[in-house]
Design a protein around this nucleic acid. Structure first.
Lengths: 148, 148
DNA sequence: TTCAAATGCAACATCGTAAGTTACATGAAA
DNA sequence: TTTCATGTAACTTACGATGTTGCATTTGAA
Protein backbone atom coordinates (compact mmCIF):
# COMPACT_ATOMS: atom_id res chain seq x y z
CA UNK A 1 0.00 0.00 0.00
CA UNK A 2 1.23 3.39 -0.97
CA UNK A 3 0.56 5.74 1.89
CA UNK A 4 -0.51 9.36 1.75
CA UNK A 5 2.18 11.29 3.62
CA UNK A 6 0.83 14.78 3.05
CA UNK A 7 -0.27 15.28 6.65
CA UNK A 8 3.18 14.28 7.83
CA UNK A 9 4.72 16.59 5.24
CA UNK A 10 2.71 19.68 6.11
CA UNK A 11 3.33 19.17 9.82
CA UNK A 12 7.04 18.95 9.19
CA UNK A 13 6.91 22.07 7.05
CA UNK A 14 4.76 24.04 9.49
CA UNK A 15 7.04 23.32 12.43
CA UNK A 16 10.07 24.45 10.44
CA UNK A 17 8.16 27.60 9.51
CA UNK A 18 7.27 28.14 13.16
CA UNK A 19 10.99 28.06 14.05
CA UNK A 20 11.72 30.71 11.45
CA UNK A 21 11.21 34.46 11.64
CA UNK A 22 10.39 35.45 8.08
CA UNK A 23 8.69 33.55 5.30
CA UNK A 24 10.21 30.28 4.12
CA UNK A 25 10.49 29.51 0.43
CA UNK A 26 9.20 26.36 -1.28
CA UNK A 27 12.79 25.55 -2.18
CA UNK A 28 13.91 25.60 1.43
CA UNK A 29 10.95 23.53 2.55
CA UNK A 30 11.51 21.08 -0.28
CA UNK A 31 15.06 20.57 0.93
CA UNK A 32 13.85 19.98 4.49
CA UNK A 33 11.30 17.46 3.30
CA UNK A 34 13.51 15.83 0.72
CA UNK A 35 11.15 16.61 -2.14
CA UNK A 36 10.40 18.99 -4.96
CA UNK A 37 9.37 22.66 -4.54
CA UNK A 38 6.38 22.13 -6.82
CA UNK A 39 5.13 19.37 -4.57
CA UNK A 40 5.50 21.75 -1.63
CA UNK A 41 3.47 24.45 -3.39
CA UNK A 42 0.80 21.98 -4.36
CA UNK A 43 0.41 20.59 -0.88
CA UNK A 44 0.74 23.88 0.98
CA UNK A 45 -1.84 25.30 -1.40
CA UNK A 46 -4.50 23.29 0.42
CA UNK A 47 -3.51 24.93 3.70
CA UNK A 48 -3.64 28.36 2.08
CA UNK A 49 -7.21 27.71 0.93
CA UNK A 50 -8.03 26.81 4.52
CA UNK A 51 -6.49 30.07 5.79
CA UNK A 52 -3.80 28.32 7.79
CA UNK A 53 -0.85 29.69 5.84
CA UNK A 54 -0.25 32.56 3.42
CA UNK A 55 2.21 32.84 0.56
CA UNK A 56 4.01 35.89 -0.80
CA UNK A 57 5.40 36.13 -4.28
CA UNK A 58 8.54 37.84 -5.44
CA UNK A 59 11.59 38.92 -3.51
CA UNK A 60 11.63 37.92 0.15
CA UNK A 61 8.52 35.88 -0.55
CA UNK A 62 7.64 32.42 0.65
CA UNK A 63 5.28 30.76 3.10
CA UNK A 64 4.10 32.08 6.49
CA UNK A 65 1.79 30.65 9.11
CA UNK A 66 -1.22 32.95 9.26
CA UNK A 67 -2.94 31.43 12.28
CA UNK A 68 -2.17 31.00 15.95
CA UNK A 69 -0.24 27.77 16.51
CA UNK A 70 -2.52 26.91 19.41
CA UNK A 71 -5.58 27.18 17.19
CA UNK A 72 -4.51 24.77 14.46
CA UNK A 73 -5.31 21.13 15.16
CA UNK A 74 -4.26 18.05 13.23
CA UNK A 75 -7.91 17.58 12.42
CA UNK A 76 -8.07 20.95 10.68
CA UNK A 77 -5.01 20.05 8.66
CA UNK A 78 -6.56 16.71 7.73
CA UNK A 79 -9.69 18.53 6.61
CA UNK A 80 -7.68 21.12 4.72
CA UNK A 81 -6.05 18.28 2.77
CA UNK A 82 -9.49 17.13 1.67
CA UNK A 83 -10.05 14.48 4.34
CA UNK A 84 -8.22 11.74 2.50
CA UNK A 85 -9.13 8.14 3.28
CA UNK A 86 -7.65 7.03 6.58
CA UNK A 87 -7.71 3.30 5.95
CA UNK A 88 -5.84 1.12 3.51
CA UNK A 89 -8.35 -1.68 4.04
CA UNK A 90 -11.87 -1.47 2.72
CA UNK A 91 -14.82 -3.20 1.21
CA UNK A 92 -14.56 -4.81 -2.16
CA UNK A 93 -17.90 -3.41 -3.29
CA UNK A 94 -19.56 -0.49 -1.55
CA UNK A 95 -23.15 -1.18 -2.66
CA UNK A 96 -23.59 -4.91 -3.01
CA UNK A 97 -26.86 -6.59 -3.88
CA UNK A 98 -25.61 -9.76 -2.21
CA UNK A 99 -26.96 -10.07 1.34
CA UNK A 100 -23.85 -11.91 2.49
CA UNK A 101 -21.67 -9.08 1.32
CA UNK A 102 -23.94 -6.55 3.01
CA UNK A 103 -23.35 -8.30 6.31
CA UNK A 104 -19.61 -8.30 5.79
CA UNK A 105 -19.58 -4.64 4.78
CA UNK A 106 -21.66 -3.62 7.76
CA UNK A 107 -19.33 -5.36 10.20
CA UNK A 108 -16.22 -3.81 8.69
CA UNK A 109 -17.78 -0.38 8.30
CA UNK A 110 -18.86 -0.26 11.92
CA UNK A 111 -15.41 -1.22 13.10
CA UNK A 112 -13.58 1.23 10.88
CA UNK A 113 -16.04 4.01 11.68
CA UNK A 114 -15.28 3.60 15.35
CA UNK A 115 -11.55 3.72 14.71
CA UNK A 116 -11.93 6.78 12.49
CA UNK A 117 -13.92 8.56 15.19
CA UNK A 118 -11.12 7.85 17.64
CA UNK A 119 -8.52 9.16 15.21
CA UNK A 120 -10.45 12.34 14.55
CA UNK A 121 -10.92 12.88 18.26
CA UNK A 122 -7.18 12.55 18.88
CA UNK A 123 -6.46 14.78 15.89
CA UNK A 124 -8.73 17.42 17.40
CA UNK A 125 -6.72 17.34 20.61
CA UNK A 126 -3.31 17.95 19.07
CA UNK A 127 -2.35 21.48 18.02
CA UNK A 128 0.71 22.84 16.27
CA UNK A 129 1.60 24.53 19.56
CA UNK A 130 1.71 21.12 21.25
CA UNK A 131 4.11 19.78 18.66
CA UNK A 132 6.25 22.93 18.77
CA UNK A 133 6.50 22.61 22.55
CA UNK A 134 7.43 18.97 22.19
CA UNK A 135 10.13 19.96 19.74
CA UNK A 136 11.49 22.65 22.08
CA UNK A 137 11.67 20.09 24.88
CA UNK A 138 13.55 17.57 22.78
CA UNK A 139 15.79 20.25 21.34
CA UNK A 140 16.84 21.44 24.82
CA UNK A 141 17.40 17.85 25.93
CA UNK A 142 19.60 17.18 22.91
CA UNK A 143 21.64 20.31 23.63
CA UNK A 144 22.16 19.25 27.24
CA UNK A 145 23.37 15.85 26.05
CA UNK A 146 25.90 17.47 23.74
CA UNK A 147 27.39 19.49 26.62
CA UNK A 148 28.34 16.33 28.51
CA UNK B 1 -5.74 5.44 -2.39
CA UNK B 2 -6.27 1.99 -3.68
CA UNK B 3 -7.63 -0.05 -0.82
CA UNK B 4 -6.81 -3.63 0.05
CA UNK B 5 -10.12 -5.47 -0.07
CA UNK B 6 -8.83 -8.96 0.61
CA UNK B 7 -10.27 -9.15 4.11
CA UNK B 8 -13.65 -8.16 2.75
CA UNK B 9 -13.25 -10.71 -0.05
CA UNK B 10 -12.34 -13.67 2.12
CA UNK B 11 -15.16 -12.91 4.53
CA UNK B 12 -17.62 -12.84 1.67
CA UNK B 13 -16.22 -16.11 0.33
CA UNK B 14 -16.17 -17.84 3.71
CA UNK B 15 -19.79 -16.97 4.46
CA UNK B 16 -20.87 -18.32 1.10
CA UNK B 17 -18.90 -21.48 1.83
CA UNK B 18 -20.55 -21.73 5.23
CA UNK B 19 -23.97 -21.70 3.54
CA UNK B 20 -22.95 -24.54 1.27
CA UNK B 21 -22.78 -28.26 2.02
CA UNK B 22 -19.91 -29.49 -0.12
CA UNK B 23 -16.78 -27.76 -1.30
CA UNK B 24 -17.11 -24.60 -3.40
CA UNK B 25 -14.99 -24.10 -6.48
CA UNK B 26 -12.83 -21.07 -7.20
CA UNK B 27 -15.00 -20.41 -10.24
CA UNK B 28 -18.17 -20.24 -8.17
CA UNK B 29 -16.54 -18.01 -5.57
CA UNK B 30 -15.10 -15.79 -8.28
CA UNK B 31 -18.60 -15.28 -9.65
CA UNK B 32 -19.91 -14.41 -6.19
CA UNK B 33 -17.11 -11.91 -5.66
CA UNK B 34 -17.13 -10.53 -9.18
CA UNK B 35 -13.53 -11.42 -9.80
CA UNK B 36 -11.24 -14.00 -11.32
CA UNK B 37 -10.80 -17.60 -10.07
CA UNK B 38 -7.03 -17.17 -9.96
CA UNK B 39 -7.42 -14.23 -7.63
CA UNK B 40 -9.63 -16.38 -5.43
CA UNK B 41 -7.02 -19.15 -5.30
CA UNK B 42 -4.27 -16.70 -4.56
CA UNK B 43 -6.13 -15.04 -1.72
CA UNK B 44 -7.66 -18.19 -0.25
CA UNK B 45 -4.18 -19.70 -0.34
CA UNK B 46 -3.24 -17.49 2.60
CA UNK B 47 -6.13 -18.90 4.61
CA UNK B 48 -5.09 -22.43 3.70
CA UNK B 49 -1.60 -21.77 5.03
CA UNK B 50 -3.22 -20.58 8.24
CA UNK B 51 -5.28 -23.77 8.48
CA UNK B 52 -8.61 -21.98 8.17
CA UNK B 53 -9.67 -23.56 4.89
CA UNK B 54 -8.64 -26.60 2.87
CA UNK B 55 -8.72 -27.17 -0.88
CA UNK B 56 -9.31 -30.38 -2.84
CA UNK B 57 -8.18 -30.87 -6.38
CA UNK B 58 -9.87 -32.75 -9.17
CA UNK B 59 -13.46 -33.75 -9.59
CA UNK B 60 -15.82 -32.53 -6.86
CA UNK B 61 -12.94 -30.47 -5.52
CA UNK B 62 -12.95 -26.90 -4.29
CA UNK B 63 -12.66 -25.02 -1.01
CA UNK B 64 -13.94 -26.04 2.42
CA UNK B 65 -13.81 -24.37 5.80
CA UNK B 66 -11.63 -26.55 8.00
CA UNK B 67 -12.19 -24.76 11.29
CA UNK B 68 -15.10 -24.10 13.60
CA UNK B 69 -16.88 -20.89 12.57
CA UNK B 70 -16.94 -19.76 16.17
CA UNK B 71 -13.16 -20.08 16.45
CA UNK B 72 -12.21 -17.91 13.49
CA UNK B 73 -11.94 -14.21 14.27
CA UNK B 74 -11.45 -11.31 11.89
CA UNK B 75 -8.10 -10.80 13.56
CA UNK B 76 -6.96 -14.28 12.57
CA UNK B 77 -8.02 -13.61 9.01
CA UNK B 78 -6.15 -10.32 9.03
CA UNK B 79 -3.06 -12.12 10.31
CA UNK B 80 -3.48 -14.90 7.76
CA UNK B 81 -3.42 -12.28 5.03
CA UNK B 82 -0.03 -11.10 6.28
CA UNK B 83 -1.23 -8.25 8.50
CA UNK B 84 -1.42 -5.69 5.71
CA UNK B 85 -1.11 -2.03 6.63
CA UNK B 86 -4.33 -0.71 8.13
CA UNK B 87 -3.77 2.96 7.37
CA UNK B 88 -3.58 4.88 4.15
CA UNK B 89 -1.92 7.79 5.94
CA UNK B 90 1.63 7.56 7.17
CA UNK B 91 4.92 9.24 7.77
CA UNK B 92 6.90 10.56 4.89
CA UNK B 93 10.16 9.19 6.23
CA UNK B 94 10.25 6.45 8.85
CA UNK B 95 13.73 7.15 10.23
CA UNK B 96 14.39 10.85 9.96
CA UNK B 97 17.52 12.54 11.26
CA UNK B 98 15.56 15.80 11.54
CA UNK B 99 14.37 16.40 15.10
CA UNK B 100 11.30 18.23 13.86
CA UNK B 101 10.27 15.27 11.79
CA UNK B 102 10.88 12.93 14.70
CA UNK B 103 8.39 14.93 16.76
CA UNK B 104 5.82 14.79 13.96
CA UNK B 105 6.34 11.07 13.43
CA UNK B 106 6.01 10.31 17.12
CA UNK B 107 2.71 12.20 17.38
CA UNK B 108 1.23 10.46 14.36
CA UNK B 109 2.59 7.05 15.31
CA UNK B 110 1.11 7.24 18.79
CA UNK B 111 -2.27 8.20 17.43
CA UNK B 112 -2.35 5.54 14.73
CA UNK B 113 -1.03 2.90 17.11
CA UNK B 114 -3.94 3.57 19.43
CA UNK B 115 -6.42 3.30 16.58
CA UNK B 116 -4.80 0.10 15.35
CA UNK B 117 -5.02 -1.42 18.82
CA UNK B 118 -8.72 -0.61 18.87
CA UNK B 119 -9.22 -2.17 15.45
CA UNK B 120 -7.38 -5.35 16.41
CA UNK B 121 -9.40 -5.58 19.60
CA UNK B 122 -12.65 -5.33 17.67
CA UNK B 123 -11.37 -7.79 15.08
CA UNK B 124 -10.66 -10.25 17.87
CA UNK B 125 -14.24 -9.99 19.05
CA UNK B 126 -15.90 -10.82 15.75
CA UNK B 127 -16.06 -14.44 14.60
CA UNK B 128 -17.34 -16.01 11.41
CA UNK B 129 -20.15 -17.49 13.49
CA UNK B 130 -21.24 -13.97 14.47
CA UNK B 131 -21.40 -12.89 10.84
CA UNK B 132 -23.17 -16.09 9.80
CA UNK B 133 -25.77 -15.50 12.52
CA UNK B 134 -26.18 -11.92 11.37
CA UNK B 135 -26.73 -13.16 7.85
CA UNK B 136 -29.32 -15.72 8.98
CA UNK B 137 -31.19 -12.97 10.83
CA UNK B 138 -31.24 -10.66 7.82
CA UNK B 139 -32.11 -13.49 5.51
CA UNK B 140 -35.15 -14.44 7.58
CA UNK B 141 -36.22 -10.81 7.81
CA UNK B 142 -35.98 -10.40 4.04
CA UNK B 143 -38.08 -13.51 3.52
CA UNK B 144 -40.75 -12.20 5.88
CA UNK B 145 -40.85 -8.94 3.97
CA UNK B 146 -41.38 -10.76 0.69
CA UNK B 147 -44.41 -12.57 2.08
CA UNK B 148 -46.28 -9.32 2.67
C1' DT C 1 -7.00 -45.82 -19.85
C1' DT C 2 -8.63 -41.66 -20.96
C1' DC C 3 -10.90 -37.48 -20.23
C1' DA C 4 -12.77 -33.71 -17.84
C1' DA C 5 -12.76 -30.95 -13.72
C1' DA C 6 -10.49 -28.93 -10.40
C1' DT C 7 -6.31 -26.58 -7.92
C1' DG C 8 -1.20 -24.71 -8.05
C1' DC C 9 1.61 -21.47 -9.68
C1' DA C 10 4.56 -18.51 -12.47
C1' DA C 11 4.73 -14.64 -15.42
C1' DC C 12 2.91 -10.70 -17.08
C1' DA C 13 -0.61 -6.76 -17.77
C1' DT C 14 -3.69 -3.29 -15.80
C1' DC C 15 -5.04 0.39 -12.98
C1' DG C 16 -5.41 4.08 -9.63
C1' DT C 17 -3.15 7.62 -7.13
C1' DA C 18 0.35 10.13 -4.54
C1' DA C 19 4.45 11.91 -5.73
C1' DG C 20 7.86 13.75 -8.85
C1' DT C 21 9.16 16.62 -12.94
C1' DT C 22 9.16 20.06 -16.61
C1' DA C 23 7.79 24.23 -18.51
C1' DC C 24 6.06 28.56 -18.51
C1' DA C 25 3.14 32.45 -16.79
C1' DT C 26 2.70 35.90 -13.17
C1' DG C 27 3.74 39.00 -9.53
C1' DA C 28 6.84 41.75 -6.33
C1' DA C 29 11.02 43.88 -4.71
C1' DA C 30 15.68 45.58 -5.52
C1' DT D 1 14.37 45.54 -15.92
C1' DT D 2 16.16 41.96 -13.74
C1' DT D 3 15.81 38.55 -10.29
C1' DC D 4 13.41 35.84 -7.05
C1' DA D 5 9.49 33.95 -5.75
C1' DT D 6 4.79 31.59 -6.30
C1' DG D 7 0.80 29.54 -9.55
C1' DT D 8 -0.46 26.09 -12.38
C1' DA D 9 -1.03 22.91 -16.14
C1' DA D 10 0.61 18.80 -18.21
C1' DC D 11 3.12 14.94 -18.07
C1' DT D 12 5.93 11.05 -16.00
C1' DT D 13 7.12 7.80 -12.36
C1' DA D 14 6.54 4.41 -8.75
C1' DC D 15 4.18 0.99 -6.53
C1' DG D 16 1.16 -2.71 -5.06
C1' DA D 17 -3.34 -4.92 -5.29
C1' DT D 18 -5.81 -6.81 -8.76
C1' DG D 19 -6.64 -9.01 -13.20
C1' DT D 20 -5.22 -12.31 -16.93
C1' DT D 21 -3.03 -16.04 -19.50
C1' DG D 22 -0.90 -20.32 -19.84
C1' DC D 23 0.39 -24.63 -18.38
C1' DA D 24 1.46 -28.35 -14.99
C1' DT D 25 -0.64 -31.45 -11.72
C1' DT D 26 -4.06 -34.05 -9.30
C1' DT D 27 -8.42 -36.49 -8.93
C1' DG D 28 -12.65 -38.91 -9.93
C1' DA D 29 -15.71 -40.76 -13.38
C1' DA D 30 -16.87 -42.73 -17.84
Amino acid sequence: MKRDSRLSSVLHALLHMAEQDGPVTSDTLAECLGTNPVVVRRTMGYLREAGIVASDRGHAGGWRISADLADVTLRQLHEALGEPAMFAIGNRNENPACLVEQVVNAALEDTFAEAEALLLERFSDITLADLAADFARRHAAARRRRKH
